[in-house]
Design a protein around this nucleic acid. Structure first.
Length: 271
DNA sequence: ATGCGGACCTGTTAGC
DNA sequence: TGCTAACAGGTCCGCA
């Protein structure tokens, strides 16, 4: 479900309710997620105040004086603020209960998400330490893409979806960004010119920031933490539009599996 | 080092 | 209507 805009939308949605609030209890109904939820999260997070809610790539960080909870939504995860006493549904795996009588509820049908705990610098955690730059910061540049891509034969679409190259670009926004930049998704990353990477960097930044403004993309089940859908779906130019006319040239949109992921593009506009 | 396919798990949809 | 197969927004890991 979530790419960077959905995760950022979620972060912004929950932050006002839990920032500076004290954790009363953690209720774990299903600990078998992508990795097991560590047992020590309960004694170590309980009683702590949430100092800040940060995001790094698609990870949400709940920072306390005693350590940091590292949360990932996987393919199907979501976070909502609910009232205490609301009965849990089938895939409501974790509740973090706060002293202001709000509950942060983690739901994840496919269980590809994760909830981890570290007492060290979270940015040095194994899962975070090698992540690429944040796409919406000045660290994400044409030169970075050039430097990392030379000599590589990987399809440019897979390249920009690699979180060690740049974080936050998932399947939807990879397709959309390449369309805006006019780049064929299968083109070898190592052969893309500086001028074309310039366009791609601009496109990625624009697509992601527009999607955040719209509250993310609701395809099947994504909802913001207040339960509202995201509105970016109506702005998608290629994703999910196989056989429909290209918005630029009218040519039928192509769908093709690239490295195991459905890829949508205009074979006329994207070269 | 790089690229690829498999793995994790459940729900929904398309097709017969 | 019902069964089955394919597919779904992520990403780590092991293999060649």
């Amino acid at each position: 479900m979530p790419e960077l805009p959905e995760v950022e939308t979620t972060r912004r949605g929950i932050a006002p309710y839990i920032e500076k609030q004290i954790v009363d209890a953690i209720i774990i109904r299903q600990k078998q997620l992508r990795w097991p939820i560590p047992d020590e999260i309960n004694p170590q997070l309980s009683g702590q105040s949430i100092d800040a809610i940060k995001r790094r790539g698609k990870y949400i960080l709940l920072q306390t004086a005693n350590g940091t909870a590292i949360l990932h939504l996987g393919m199907s995860g979501s976070l909502r603020i609910v009232e205490p006493g609301l009965p849990p549904a089938k895939h409501d795996h974790v509740d973090i209960c706060f002293s202001n009588n709000k509950v942060l509820r983690f739901t994840d049908p496919r269980r590809f998400g994760s909830l981890l705990w570290t007492q060290s610098d979270p940015y040095q955690h194994k899962l975070l330490s090698k992540l690429g730059p944040e796409p919406l910061t000045d660290d994400f540049t044409t030169n970075h893409l050039l430097l990392r891509s030379r000599g590589r034969s990987i399809a440019v679409k897979s390249f920009i979806m690699d979180s060690h190259i740049v974080v936050g670009v998932g399947n939807i926004y990879a397709c959309e960004s390449l369309f805006r930049a006019g780049i064929h998704p299968e083109r070898a990353a190592g052969k893309i010119s500086k001028a074309r990477f310039d366009k791609l960097v601009v496109a990625i930044k624009a697509v992601l920031s527009e999607a955040i403004i719209q509250g993310g993309t609701t395809l099947k089940d994504f909802q913001q933490s207040d339960g509202k859908p995201g509105y970016f779906k109506q702005a998608l130019a290629v994703y999910g539009r196989a056989e429909e006319p290209c918005l630029e040239c009218g040519n039928a949109i192509t769908v093709k599996t690239i490295n195991g992921r459905s890829t949508f593009y205009c074979a006329r506009c994207q070269r």
